[in-house]
Amino acid sequence: MTMNTTPDPLIERLAGELEPVRVPARREGLAWVALAVAATVLAIELIEGLWRGIASGEASAMFWIANGLLLVLGLAAATSAVTMAGPRVGNAHEAPRWALAALGVLPLAVLATLATGGESHSPLADSHGLACALAGLAAGVLTAVTLVLWLRRGAPVSPAAAGLHTGLAAGALGSAAYGLSCPIDGAAHLGIWHVLPVALAAAIGRLAIPPLVRW
């Protein structure tokens, strides 16, 4: 080991200022996200009321598939964003990409059905669609704030990716949370209007979050 005999003033100053630090574990970040989602679901229950048909077996298979895919994407993106607070050459953030591709099958399936004449009603004629999309987007706000605060405590070295993954997580988890209150469980509604918040939140996150987490 090499030791400089001449003390470096900066090193001396930094060593003089040193205080013990608490190292936040990754699971702590994930616990905060889980708490944010739980608080969001509670708020939705209080404001809109959750759909009771879920518990009584009225929900279609598509309801479970769409919300399941949203949840998987939300968990993958949230885990990725939480991990970005602790940088490391060699970290890969590939999982959200594949989860997003899987979710993308839903709108593509709706469009394919429309194109081949299998769906008689256009999703654009869905009078509840836009309200669902905006509510899903709003339901992601708490998750986004939680992740941004977490990232600001850490040292993200890819602010653009951190913003994108935070947006994906917030959009997907927000839409899944709001989905628990939505009784419209057809493929066209879920595949378009419940996926749209993910795209919107990802775009907002990519544009608005990097300046907030850059250091």
């Binding site: 090193i11 930094l14 630090v21 190292v23 936040p24 574990a25 405590r153 040292a155 250091w215």
Partner: peptide, 16 residues
């Protein structure tokens, strides 16, 4: 060095 100092809590001691 300043960045290391400021962000020293972001290193996970279980990793390299």
């Amino acid at each position: 060095l300043l960045a290391l100092h400021r962000k020293r809590a972001s290193w996970d001691p279980s990793r390299a």
